[in-house]
Amino acid sequence: MTITLHGACCTLRSGGILIRGESGSGKSSLALLLASLEDGAFVADDRVVCDVNGGRVLARAHPVLAGRVEVRGQGILTVAELGLTSCEEAILDLVVDLVDSSPRLPEPPASTDLLGVPLPRLVLDHGVRAAGLAPLLIRAALRKPTP
């Protein structure tokens, strides 16, 4: 089974990250920020095509949008124009949900199910993202062993 999700996808240290959130929440911006890091790469923006391969979720760009990203106020740019490394697909290791706000001391988020495969989930609110802590927290989440 294949599904197409509204989101963005990138990698860090070869770990695939699916970023979800409402329109305008910063999915593309966060994916670009992560992809601009030394060990990052850009996979997809806006429409992420996912399917299961060997018990893992594989994500790639929708063919119409491959190699492109929408930057609010700038239009649609190519990953090459931005000088970023890109990769055609990524095995997802983490789902990041962008929200407006979250409790000060929340319980750890439950994993999320994507195509019948449980994946670790990280919830990042606007304040954490505005403080520039998202890359640090995402790296920490990728280092955690999966249960």
Results as ranks from 00 to 15, higher is better:
residue 49 V to N: 05
residue 29 S to M: 12
residue 36 S to A: 15
residue 63 P to R: 03
residue 52 V to M: 07
residue 46 D to Y: 11
residue 34 L to K: 01
residue 60 R to L: 13
residue 24 G to K: 01
residue 49 V to H: 04
residue 32 L to N: 11
residue 21 G to C: 02
residue 59 A to I: 04
residue 66 A to F: 05
residue 50 C to Q: 09
residue 62 H to S: 14
residue 67 G to D: 13
residue 20 R to H: 07
residue 60 R to F: 13
residue 19 I to E: 08
residue 37 L to K: 05
residue 41 A to H: 13
residue 49 V to G: 04
residue 52 V to K: 08
residue 37 L to T: 06
residue 57 V to S: 06
residue 32 L to K: 10
residue 33 L to Y: 09
residue 35 A to K: 04
residue 23 S to T: 05
residue 42 F to Q: 14
residue 21 G to A: 02
residue 53 N to F: 15
residue 53 N to Y: 14
residue 25 S to E: 01
residue 36 S to E: 09
residue 17 I to S: 04
residue 38 E to K: 07
residue 32 L to E: 09
residue 44 A to K: 03
residue 49 V to Y: 04
residue 40 G to W: 03
residue 62 H to P: 04
residue 50 C to L: 15
residue 47 R to G: 09
residue 34 L to R: 02
residue 17 I to A: 02
residue 30 L to F: 04
residue 20 R to W: 06
residue 17 I to G: 03
residue 52 V to C: 12
residue 21 G to W: 02
residue 34 L to C: 02
residue 33 L to G: 13
residue 41 A to Q: 08
residue 61 A to V: 09
residue 37 L to R: 14
residue 56 R to I: 10
residue 25 S to L: 00
residue 58 L to W: 10
residue 42 F to G: 10
residue 63 P to A: 04
residue 49 V to K: 07
residue 67 G to L: 12
residue 54 G to L: 06
residue 38 E to T: 09
residue 27 K to E: 04
residue 66 A to N: 08
residue 46 D to A: 12
residue 22 E to V: 00
residue 48 V to M: 07
residue 18 L to H: 08
residue 44 A to G: 08
residue 18 L to K: 11
residue 31 A to N: 06
residue 67 G to K: 13
residue 22 E to K: 05
residue 39 D to F: 02
residue 39 D to H: 02
residue 65 L to I: 11
residue 39 D to V: 01
residue 25 S to K: 01
residue 27 K to R: 06
residue 24 G to L: 01
residue 56 R to G: 06
residue 54 G to H: 07
residue 30 L to D: 06
residue 46 D to K: 12
residue 33 L to N: 14
residue 46 D to V: 13
residue 63 P to H: 00
residue 39 D to C: 00
residue 65 L to V: 11
residue 55 G to M: 00
residue 56 R to H: 12
residue 49 V to Q: 13
residue 26 G to I: 02
residue 67 G to N: 11
residue 27 K to V: 04
residue 38 E to Q: 11
residue 51 D to F: 15
residue 65 L to H: 15
residue 56 R to F: 07
residue 47 R to S: 13
residue 24 G to S: 00
residue 56 R to D: 07
residue 43 V to H: 12
residue 58 L to A: 09
residue 61 A to D: 10
residue 44 A to Q: 07
residue 50 C to W: 07
residue 54 G to D: 09
residue 65 L to A: 08
residue 58 L to I: 15
